[in-house]
């Protein structure tokens, strides 16, 4: 798999897949997509990059340890639930606000925050599994 073409193309492929994963995540509420799928696409992107360039560049590119990303995602998901409790509704009840940004109404919600948490957990956990298995010296 270590052909020159693959190694050259892999970063672009990864970048595209990451962009696509965010797109899938954001449109998930109204079209097919969502945190699980987006997260898996992003994790696959990392895995491809890792296969092409080795795991060290992936770790450097990620900046954080993938498990830390997953933990942050779990935290976000919990925060999304706790915000609802602060608003005196049951845990994880969806709350929506519609701030206006440059004249465009942007729907923001705790549900979206929760989905982002799911996305990050899936990315982090599965990337860390893949990277662990890609290591040569285990």
């Amino acid at each position: 798999m270590n052909t020159v073409i693959f190694r050259t193309l892999a970063p672009f492929l990864t970048a595209l897949m990451l962009l696509f994963s965010v797109f899938v995540l954001l449109r998930g509420h109204n079209e097919p997509g969502g945190g699980f799928i987006g997260g898996l696409i992003a994790a696959a992107a990392m895995a491809i990059y890792g296969v092409a360039r080795g795991i060290q560049p992936v770790r450097e590119a990620l900046w954080f340890h993938p498990m830390a990303i997953a933990a942050f995602g779990l935290l976000l998901a919990c925060v999304a639930g706790l915000v609802s409790m602060l608003a005196a509704v049951p845990f994880l009840t969806g709350l929506w606000i519609y701030p206006s940004l440059f004249g465009v109404e942007v729907p923001l919600s705790t549900v979206m925050l929760f989905d982002l948490g799911v996305y990050l957990v899936v990315v982090g956990a599965i990337t860390s599994i893949a990277l662990a298995l890609e290591r040569e010296d285990i």
């Binding site: 969502g34 699980f36 898996l40 899936v122 599965i126 599994i129 662990a132 298995l133």
Partner: peptide, 17 residues
């Protein structure tokens, strides 16, 4: 099923390791 797919993958990876 959607969540089950992801969980069974994690489970599979765990068994593999």
């Amino acid at each position: 099923i959607l969540t089950a797919i992801v969980i069974s993958f994690s489970f599979f990876a765990f068994l593999l390791v």
